[in-house]
Design a protein around this nucleic acid. Structure first.
Lengths: 219, 219
DNA sequence: ATACATATTTAGGCTAACCTAATTCCATTT
DNA sequence: AAATGGAATTAGGTTAGCCTAAATATGTAT
C-alpha cells in the first residue's frame, strides 16, 4: 500500500522527530532525503491526505500513529537485516547500511517474522541500535554517550552515535567493538580526551570526538 | 543502472526465449508481464536504444549479450534467495516465489556472492531450477519430464515443470519431494497415468498431468 | 512597526512507465 | 491481386515523483 517514496519519507520523519522532539520542517526533511524542498511540500500534502502524517502548513509535519507504525516496521526490518548481514553473511558493520536500505523495503510479514526467529530475536543491530518488536515496541534503553561518564566509571560499549563509515572503520582499526569493557582512568580537561583501559588490558587515549560517539552502559 | 521495469522485462524475455527459441513477440511479452501491448512496444524501443535487447519492428525482440547477462544475474539472485528462504528460514516451497521476486532486485554483488557461499554454492533452487554461476553459466541439465520415461525406468525427481502453488501443494500433500526415487511399474495406455513405486516403499498412481510436470534424472 | 533574510509554498514543467483508441502492418485466404 | 483478421505500432493521455523559478509567509533585528 505504501510506495517506496512514502516509506523513505516516513523513515526520515521518524529519525528527525527522534532528534528534535517536535515538528519536522520541510527543509530538514528535504535535506535529509536529498530532495528539493518544493517537492517535499508537494509530497507531504499527499501523505497528509492519506493520514500517514499530520501536516501544518508552514510549520512542518509529524507522524500519525499509522505513519509511526509503518516507520517502525521499516526500521525493524532494516535492523534485522543488518544483524543477518553481519552475523550470518559475514559482512562488516560498515558495509551493511546500503544493502539494508534496499532490503528494508521487501514486503512480507512472514519473511520478517521468520528472519527475527532465525536470528534469535536480537534486541539490537550491529551498531547497537535497538530493534523494535513486531508491534513497534522497544526495550528500555539505558545507554548514554561515554563523555557523560566520570573518572573511575566502568562501562560496556553498547552502540555508536555516529554511523559514518569513517567512524566505524576507525573503531575497527583500533580494535574497539560493541561489548568491550572500558574503565575511565582519566579525563583530560584541556581537550576532553579520555584515558581508558579496554577489557582490563590495553590502555588507550580516546579523543573528544570518539568519546562523544561511543554509547555505553554503566556496569 | 537498470530500472526495476527493465529488469522485469529482461527476465520475462529470457524466460520466453527459453521456451520458444527464436524471437519474443510483443504480445507474448505483454501477456507475460500483465502489461498492455502498446506499452510494451514503447518500452522495448527504449531498451533497444540502450542495447539491452535487439528489436526488429513488427517481429519481436531478443536479448543482447549484455541483456542476457543481466537477466541471468536476476535469475541467479532469485534462485539463491529461494534456497535461503526454504533451507535457512524454513518457508515452504510454495511460499517463496513472491518474496524472491522482490529480493531478486536488491543490488549488491558482495551480498549475492556471500549469500552463495553461505548456502554452500547450491546448483539448484527448491524447485530444481538450476542456478547460474556469477558468470551466468549453468551446469549441464540432464533432466527430462517423467512422461518421457518407460516402464521399468528408475529415476530421481530433480525438479518441477509447473511452478503453480496448486501443483506444489499437491506434491507436498502427496509426500512427493525432490530427491525421491521413483520406479515406473506400469504406464496405463488409456489415460497415460503412471503406476510408480516411491523410495522403494509406497506405491502411487500419478495422472498424466502430474507425470508431465515432474522432472527426473534416470538413475 | 518595518524591513530583511530565510523558509515555505505555488505554479508550471519534466520523465518513467503505464493506459486507451486509432491506425498500420502482416500473413493468410479467397 | 484484394480482402480480412489479428498483431503491432502510433498518437495522445495519465500518474507518481521529482525539478526550477517565482511568490508568499515567518521570524528576527532594527
Amino acid at each position: 500500500m505504501t510506495s517506496l517514496a512514502e516509506e523513505n519519507y516516513l523513515k526520515a520523519i521518524y529519525k528527525l522527530q527522534e532528534k528534535q522532539a517536535d515538528m519536522v520542517t520541510t527543509s530538514a526533511l528535504a535535506e535529509s532525503l536529498g530532495i528539493n524542498a518544493a517537492s517535499v511540500t508537494d509530497f507531504i500534502k499527499k501523505m497528509a491526505v492519506k493520514k500517514l502524517i499530520r501536516y501544518e502548513k508552514s510549520k512542518g509535519v509529524k507522524l500519525s500513529d499509522q505513519g509511526r507504525q509503518i516507520a517502525l516496521k521499516i526500521i525493524r526490518k532494516h535492523r534485522l537485516w543488518e544483524v543477518w548481514l553481519v552475523n550470518n553473511l559475514g559482512l562488516k558493520w560498515d558495509e551493511v547500511h546500503e544493502i539494508a536500505e534496499q532490503l528494508e523495503h521487501v514486503n512480507s510479514d512472514e519473511l520478517i517474522e521468520q528472519l527475527d526467529k532465525h536470528l534469535g530475536y536480537p534486541k539490537a543491530d550491529p551498531h547497537g541500535d535497538l530493534i523494535p518488536d513486531a508491534k513497534g515496541r522497544f526495550i528500555k534503553n539505558t545507554s548514554k554517550p561515554l563523555n557523560d561518564c566520570c573518572k573511575g566509571d566502568k562501562v560496556i560499549i553498547t552502540g555508536v552515535a555516529d554511523h559514518s563509515n569513517s567512524f566505524l572503520q576507525y573503531l575497527t582499526k583500533s580494535n574497539i567493538k560493541l561489548g568491550d569493557e572500558l574503565q575511565v582512568e582519566a579525563i583530560e580537561e584541556f581537550d576532553k580526551s579520555f584515558q581508558v583501559k579496554i577489557n582490563r588490558k590495553e590502555r588507550k587515549l580516546l579523543s573528544k570526538e570518539v568519546v562523544k560517539n561511543l554509547l555505553v552502559n554503566i556496569v
